[in-house]
Each structure stands twice: as C-alpha cells, then as structure tokens.
Write a protein that binds this DNA or RNA. Structure first.
Lengths: 121, 121
DNA sequence: GATACAATCCAATTGTGGTTGAAATATTGC
DNA sequence: GCAATATTTCAACCACAATTGGATTGTATC
C-alpha cells in the first residue's frame, strides 16, 4: 500500500517544516558551518541551535565534525547523499504528471459506497 | 534578506508536514476527489477531512468545485500550477549544487564574531 | 590541578496545531 | 413550508514540539 519512501518523506517534511531549521540549512548550504556564527547570524541561543541541529542530524540531513586543531569547535555540514534522496523523493511524490482526472465512483449519480455502484438516478 | 520564495516554502512545508494531509494529496492525485470516498478510504470523520482540505485550499494546493447536478457534493482537485511552483521552489532550495565548502571566518584561528555585524543591529 | 570556553543535556514552561463532538450552513426533494 | 443529505464551522480538549534557563560534559590553556 504505502511505499516506505512516503513515510520517510513525511518524517523529513516534519523536520523541515520549521522556519529556523530552514534558515540553518540555508546557511549550512552557503558555507556557514560554525555553531557560534550561526548563533550570531540567526540571533538564537546556542543551546537552541544545538537542539535544532540535533533534530537535523537525527534525520540524516546534516553531519557533524570536530575541529582538528581545537576539538571544542564543531562544524556541521549537509549530508549530500541524503539531500539528493530527499530531493528525488519529493519530486517523485509531487510530480504533476501523477495527477489523474477524477474517477466518478462517488457522487449524485453513483452510490457513495465503492461496492454497490449500481443505482438509478 | 529573505527572498519571498523561502517564506512561501516554509509555509508550504508546514502544511505538508502532516501524514493525513499527505495521504489526502496522494488520493487526490490518484483521482479520488469525492469527499465521502476520502472519508471511507482514510477512515476519518468528515469534519476532519474538511478541516485538512481547508488548510490545503488556503495554501493554494487544492481547488474546490461543486457538482453541477447536485451542489451538495463538492470535489477537490490538485492546483497544478501551484504544485509545479512548489516542486520548483523545493528543488531550487534543496539543490545539492548549492552546497558550498566551509568558509572559515570562525573557529580557533579567527575571531568568532564577524566584524561587519558589530556596527549595525 | 584549576580555570575558561564551546557545546550539549536536562527539566520545566509555553504555544501551536490536530482532534473531537455538536451546532450551523447550504442545497435538494417532498 | 418541512425533512433529509453533504459539508462546514465552532468551541473545547489534548498532545507534541519549540523555547527557556540552568546544569553538565568535554577540551584547551595556564
């Protein structure tokens, strides 16, 4: 019935449907990956940024990496394969070519139950 | 600062991030547009379906049309132009080609706050 | 070891939005 | 007019997630 990609898409959409997470993703794509700079540009508390990044990381959309010189700093990056999978799943689900004309098995002429479609007007 | 497409995308994602609305859209695309048959297939109360369809309609994703013979029946359909706009906006925002490498203006070597952001705000 | 810093985790609060049931609206047939 | 059908609207309830402030972890410097 429901292919697993639909569930994955629903989960991804729930993660993405947050303005601040969209802004974070937007900055990550633009090359801003330092946590503190994200905080200054978005005017958000660092713990809040950490929370949203955790949600994005658990969804597999971003990856985390610690600085080689000073491990206190962490850098976040877009997970490119999963982003491509997200894009493909979304475009496949919302493809306008999937739109089918109305199949009138319900309405004033037909019965509302799909079983007995034989009814006189 | 924020292009209007991003704001629109955030609104659309918030509307789409609902499993039942995704199911409704899926059925609408497959050609099932009668309200009562949506209720039987999704096992939802009609007022709940009406609510979700109202959200989708206000977002411009579905259109409503009353039956020509008996105006008590209403049929819902996908708004194809807006669906194409949604698809285009989404793919443009989440295009993997947009991913830029990290720009290290923050970290152990550099100061954490960008100098241009100190003057304003 | 002690201190400072970046980031995270935790508990509590708040706010938004889905769900529910009943009433209201609209239209058709008698 | 009245009754019946299809849908919508309304108000209340409930659950989950974002936010907040403080405490904690991990790391580097002195």
């Amino acid at each position: 019935m429901e292919q697993p990609t639909t569930h994955q898409l629903a989960h991804w959409l729930k993660v993405l449907a947050e303005p601040r997470r969209l802004q974070i993703l937007n900055l990550l794509m633009a090359g801003v990956q330092c946590n503190c700079e994200l905080g200054t540009q978005l005017d958000m508390a660092p713990n809040l940024i950490s929370h949203h990044l955790s949600v994005l990381r658990k969804a597999g959309l971003v990856e985390v990496e610690r600085d080689a010189v000073d491990a206190r700093w962490v850098y976040y990056a877009i997970n490119r394969p999963n982003l491509e999978a997200l894009n493909a799943t979304f475009t496949a689900f919302f493809d306008p070519a999937r739109i089918q004309p109305r199949q009138p098995n319900c309405g004033p002429q037909t019965a509302c139950e799909p079983d007995d479609a034989v009814t006189t007007r």
